[in-house]
Design a protein around this nucleic acid. Structure first.
Lengths: 353, 353
DNA sequence: CTGAAAGCGCTTACAG
DNA sequence: CTGAAAGCGCTTACAG
């Protein structure tokens, strides 16, 4: 049971870095029990300052880092955070990953990615087995799988920490991060109304996504500030895809009283709307203004560069991991960083005449 | 040392799924030692068929899955695969992740993402500590960090498995996956030459990326087939970014003998070239043909939709994880799937007149 | 404030 | 072909 007696060669291997130090090495070298070393690793308050300092010196000297696997086995919980997503947009996924990683840096946690298909009949058991097998410390869910109540119910059972990112509060404050899409929609409505547009169109995301409703609701709020209303005939249902944006815009542009401006629920659909305008022989922004949502790379690559609403996905990701592993510290960031904001480029202008 | 004696309540918890089975449960329930259960987990050949079947039945009945953390601790190696990348393009990263995950499905391995900065002075020690702390089973490196010989040397020291994805063989066959960018470049050159272009331009990626040279080399090969040569004045050095594509194309288009077609080293730069053409008052493909490389989403979103070379990144990712964890099986996929291919859209046409 | 014992769930020698 | 012992590197009770 007791670790084998250290040989002189062991210490040489340690010194040279050929062997990584373990808790037993540190305990022996510091002249304490491993339990005491464990106490400094876990920041136990009950420790004499001198004892702590002595041990910390040895730890620093040998560059000791506790083995997450061994710790996890004893804790019955790993130091892994899972990102569970079904959003197919690569830029969203990468921004979210970067934000999560920002918040995890230096924490000893690692990020494990897990795409899923919300339409799968085995969605809940698949996610459950991922969590239980890896004994995940916590998971972050993004739309739309974050809106799934079946998944949420299972999460509560497992005891795994979780944060659901969504456009509205889908859970209590400990378990949800709200992206305030409604605010973004409002900015879009206000922008178009301020330019003087009175007849505006909207291309929504899928109605099964909360964000579709939030963005539309906010849009109508922004228009209403200026006495403009969104007519139901000027609303097309899209699917957050390029093709659905193209089709939706084509439909709206074929109307006798076609809109002079279109708010597309995301940049992909706005890019589709640009193509539809071209097919209809309309110039943007001369004949038609187009505004998107996300401010992904595509927004500045299309022609004309898109006016859009910037969604601070990376900041949201950072917030999510802060909430999960709680190394937020005193939060010195500007709360405005977490709000969508308007980015004006060249696809919007006052209506002709 | 011996596990505590099982109580009746334990088995009830097991049956109901409230408690996960361990190797001790399976051993007890199957009437064998845990070592024998371990043998079936690890597919040891020396086992009586009846013994194996009996144990497999118990495993199936209780849905037993070995704890990767405990296995990892005993093996001194985790079941995690790291993706180490510095490519800033989100679509590349996500496609690579999806491909790696394709190859890992059902293997029990998980994917841990690790973006890095090749310019950092602590690049090598950072990656080393990531690998050693997590005792990674293996890592996949993508360009350009995959081309770093300092990182590669460190990898050899650690004993961690690794695969370097690059446009040329940067390592032995066990450690490298070649993306054949030269072939893709050739397809671009051949396509433009076949359309009848004789005066063509090239915007390269950064000269520190191997792919920049491969794509150019292949391009010249493809042109040469048809007796066309690439004049050095018609080459601009870019950086794989939109802005560098815009600048590079603007420079080429300002030439007295401006090219009638431009091959941009990737889609981002090709999108920039499209903007440059617009600024110069040239229509695409009427006055100028443009061809890109990658076939990311952006290629079909810009106007006109880009003719480009499709890089099979997801397939390459799958190949990489197959190589790493070797569950390739007999490889029934078409080898052509791993080769770049030409995707003709609307940005290329014969030169005017 | 500190430690000796037992245990987390597996595998590696070593036997037989 | 199968198993009892020791160990991987940590933590959780429980003492004192």
């Amino acid at each position: 049971m007791s670790p084998r007696t250290p040989k002189a060669s062991d210490d040489a291997a340690l010194e040279s870095g050929r062997r990584r130090a373990t808790i037993n090495d540190i305990a022996r070298l510091a002249g304490v029990s491993k339990k005491t070393v464990s106490r400094v690793i876990n920041r136990s308050p009950s420790l004499r300052p001198e004892t702590r300092e002595k041990i910390e010196a040895v730890i620093a000297r040998y560059g000791y880092a506790p083995d997450p696997q061994a710790r996890g086995l004893a804790f019955r919980r790993s130091f892994l955070i899972g990102l569970i997503y079904d959003n197919p947009n690569p830029q969203y996924v990468v921004n979210m990953q970067l934000g999560l990683l920002d918040g995890m840096r230096g924490s000893g946690f690692e990020l494990v990615v897990h795409p899923c298909d919300r339409g799968s009949t085995t969605l809940v058991p698949d996610i459950r087995s991922f969590i239980e097998r890896q004994k995940l410390f916590g998971v972050v869910l993004t739309p739309s799988v974050s809106e799934d109540e079946g998944v949420a119910a299972m999460l509560r059972e497992t005891g795994c920490e979780f944060v659901r990112v969504a456009s509205v509060a889908v859970d209590g404050p400990d378990h949800s991060i709200v992206t305030q899409d409604r605010h973004g929609g409002m900015l879009a409505g206000r922008h178009l109304a301020e330019l003087g547009h009175r007849r505006v169109g909207f291309i929504s995301g899928p109605l099964t996504f909360r964000s579709s409703h939030e963005r539309r609701g906010g849009f109508e709020d922004g228009l209403r500030e200026h006495g403009v209303t969104l007519s139901p005939e000027h609303v097309a249902e899209g699917a957050y895809t390029f093709e659905s944006g193209l089709d939706g815009a084509a439909k709206l542009l074929a109307l006798p009283d076609r809109p002079t401006a279109i708010f597309a629920g995301n940049d992909e659909m706005a890019a589709g709307a640009l193509h539809a305008a071209r097919h209809a022989g309309l110039s943007v922004p001369g004949d038609l203004s187009v505004i998107g949502f996300d401010d992904f790379q595509i927004a500045s690559r299309v022609w004309p560069p898109l006016t859009t609403i910037r969604a601070p996905t990376r900041e949201i990701g950072r917030l999510a991991s802060d909430k999960l592993i709680g190394q937020a510290g005193e939060d010195k960031r500007d709360p405005a960083d977490r709000l969508p904001s308007l980015v004006v480029r060249e696809s919007t202008a006052p209506p002709r005449g």
